[in-house]
């Protein structure tokens, strides 16, 4: 599919010849030649009005025009790199589908990254804060039903929010944690791992080196939950973080320990 009105009409014959000369030189130069960059910049700058023209078609769809111009320019640069002047087509005609492709891809990416999870992100934040509130008034953690009633949403929605939170926690292991994690001050009182209750299991499974390798807060949570038998809610109070955060750290740390113990 070719797009009409691709080349700005105000271009005169002189500019057209200049563009042709630039494109010929760009195609001739070796890919390592430092002059290529400045020639490409000039070609791209000449065609920016085309990118702006195409981006304006999508300006009423909720994305800032400058973002659309930016991704469209990426499409233009790709087209310049791939353009072959020998083919006899105009660069503007050749570049238009690539520019539109980048703009459309931007909308697809945004739809996935922002629109769908945002509802869950907001619900997650509400579930976290409401859990803390209800825990204070009930003197125990709330149930899914109580959270759903309190927030005026379905129980399935609460479960989805919990699930998404775990999915995100897993995904963020390599990314080094999220905002809540960074915000939580590591005020962890020192807990020795010379707990006598480790004795029975440590020799066979080399658990001790794995525990020693854990960050202090993760190690503390493991000790409190599995060897001191404190509940997630009690640990959350003790460490000054949310119970959901405790559960995410537990899930993540157990997975790491399991991996460490089975990887021989």
């Amino acid at each position: 599919m070719s797009e009409p009105a691709a080349r700005p009409s105000r271009w005169g014959e002189e500019q057209r010849l200049h563009e042709r000369a630039l494109l010929d030189e760009f195609a001739r130069l070796d890919h390592t030649d430092p002059r290529r960059a400045s020639i490409r910049d000039e070609i791209v700058t000449m065609h920016l009005p085309l990118v702006q023209h195409l981006a304006r078609r999508y300006r009423d769809r909720g994305e800032p025009l400058e973002d659309l111009v930016q991704v469209g320019t990426i499409g233009l640069i790709k087209a310049v790199d791939r353009f072959d002047p020998e083919r006899g087509t105009e660069l503007s005609t050749f570049a238009t589908p690539t520019i539109l492709g980048e703009i459309k891809r931007h909308f697809r990416d945004r739809a996935w990254a922002v629109r769908v999870p945002r509802r869950l992100q907001e619900l997650q934040a509400q579930v976290v804060s409401r859990t803390d509130e209800l825990t204070r008034t009930l003197h125990r953690a709330p149930t899914v039903r109580e959270l759903a009633e309190s927030l005026g949403v379905g129980e399935e929605d609460v479960l989805d929010a919990l699930e998404a939170r775990h999915a995100y926690a897993t995904a963020s292991i390599d990314a080094g944690g999220d905002a809540e994690e960074r915000a939580a001050a590591p005020v962890v009182r020192s807990l020795g791992i010379d707990d006598p209750s480790f004795g029975a299991i440590e020799d066979r499974e080399s658990l001790r080196p794995l525990l020693e390798a854990l960050p202090e807060r993760e190690r503390t949570i493991i000790v409190l939950r599995f060897f001191r038998h404190m509940s997630q809610t009690q640990i959350a109070e003790e460490l000054g973080i949310s119970q959901m955060h405790v559960s995410r750290l537990l899930a993540r740390t157990l997975a790491q320990l399991r991996e460490g113990m089975t990887a021989d």
Binding site: T131, T143, R145, L147, L162, T233, Q243, S247
Partner: peptide, 12 residues
């Protein structure tokens, strides 16, 4: 109808 901390324990 398990409280949230128990629910997360069961999941684990």
């Amino acid at each position: 109808d398990l409280p949230l901390d128990q629910l997360e324990d069961v999941r684990l």
